[in-house]
Design a protein around this nucleic acid. Structure first.
Lengths: 243, 243
DNA sequence: CGTCGACTGTCAGCCAGCCGACGTTCTTGG
DNA sequence: CCAAGAACGTCGGCTGGCTGACAGTCGACG
């Protein structure tokens, strides 16, 4: 069965790239790979909604997904985070059996691998390495959210924008989030976001974000090149993020 | 050794009351109890600071603890959450080995049981029940923080105040946080907080909180009695919290 | 039992950032 | 290649909530 073999290879690829399955021996990796089912989403497609029941974890092989909270009126949704290749999402409902707490939407064409609850439970129970990685990742998630609450409390909009950009660098480059303030030098970020989305991420209006971005460009702190955002001097931007 | 026996009994008490150790058989419970060391904190005493290295988990036997983020200037700290009897805190540093991400301060005279990393690791590895409880609790923590970010995005100050009160009811009475909007009837909360602290919890200034509280009292939505806050009709308050 | 510190109550002034409005530019599909 | 929808750029007016200031209240402690 050529199809099956190909699918399994793709699954192995996805696993290797994902922090959750790091440090796993070949045999265990094969076991995990067998439990995965691939699923592709088109740009803008909704993967699940707030309030849905959920019993699957999604690994992102390629593309990107935004985790949002829809407003009940028609305004801009809040964007909690975005997940890129190697990341995963949807684990909460697996852990506590409750409904989805947020909505997941594909930012671009995205390839995912789905892991269902029974397989997930088996893996977590039998593989100490996966268990450890899971706990570390959840802790990281909590720290990220804590930092977000902190920003919303203490920083004004320009500050939140600057800090958000720094954090995005750190995430994209896989660095320690705690070092966001000590970044230096030039960085280049792929930038698939609209200004409305950016506004949703930092808790501001589209118009304000537009103005603040223009300010940053004027001051030479950031620059747009094709589909990338270039930050010539991260240290200088970090200064602008100070409380 | 009478002293040891007494201490161990207190430890068992603490464990029984804590969700993390629910559903544990007597023998395992004894093992856990043996790993605990009691520690008492006076009102206002700092338990640990942001940035400290940390390798212990604290179980609250009695009293209450606030988890705060200190501002770098002299203004009001943000208060992320408060932990009462049966709750625990300080688990993050245990999970990922990183520094404390927040400061913990005793709100009143507080009795805690300390569990150090080595004992914690052993327990989590050997007891599937504890492991499960830990994961569920972490998931709950993430949901709580997500809800907090959501509130800061979508609600104005009156809305955040009302919702905070509803959430406090839910936490104090040990209900499902998702049901906060559907509460009805009269509720009575112990109220050890100053207006400044309340302001820190909902992200507002002390003055604004004072004014909003007065409004709520005028409308008959809340009432202060001795050291308690009484909410005569939770459903009516929930209406005030609507976005 | 006076005084000192912490907390509550209240007010006026100010401004960051929201909102609505509208033109322009980009892009996508027919 | 054209039309229509989406995203960007910009403006002025309005206001929620912050800041600062000060007066009452209450409990603790010498």
């Amino acid at each position: 069965m050529v199809g099956t073999t190909t699918s399994s290879d793709a699954s192995r690829q996805a696993l290797r790239a994902c922090r959750l399955f790091a440090d796993l021996d070949e045999v265990s990796l094969g076991l995990c790979a067998a439990a995965l089912r691939p699923r592709r989403f088109r740009k803008g497609e909704t993967i699940f909604h707030t309030g849905d029941p959920g019993d699957s974890l999604f690994l992102v092989s390629s593309g990107a997904v935004k985790i949002t909270i829809p407003p009940d009126d028609g305004s801009e949704p809040a964007i909690l985070t975005t997940i890129g290749p190697g990341g995963f999402f949807g684990e909460l409902s697996l852990l506590d059996g409750a409904a989805r707490s947020a909505t997941a939407v594909a930012l671009e064409s995205t390839e995912t691998q789905i892991l269902r609850r029974d397989a997930f439970d088996t893996l977590v129970d039998s593989q100490a390495a996966i268990r450890h990685n899971l706990l570390v990742t959840l802790a990281g998630e909590i720290r990220r959210l804590t930092a977000q609450v902190e920003d919303l409390h203490f920083l004004d909009l320009p500050g939140r924008l600057a800090r958000h950009l720094l954090r995005t660098i750190v995430i994209r480059e896989g660095l320690d989030p705690a070092t966001a303030d000590e970044l230096t030098g030039e960085h280049r970020l792929p930038w698939p976001y609209t200004q409305s989305e950016l506004a949703g991420m930092i808790g501001g209006s589209r118009q304000s974000v537009n103005r603040l971005l223009a300010d940053l460009v004027d001051e030479g702190l950031v620059r747009f090149e094709a589909d990338d955002l270039v930050i010539p001097d991260a240290a200088r931007l970090a200064l602008a993020a100070r409380r």
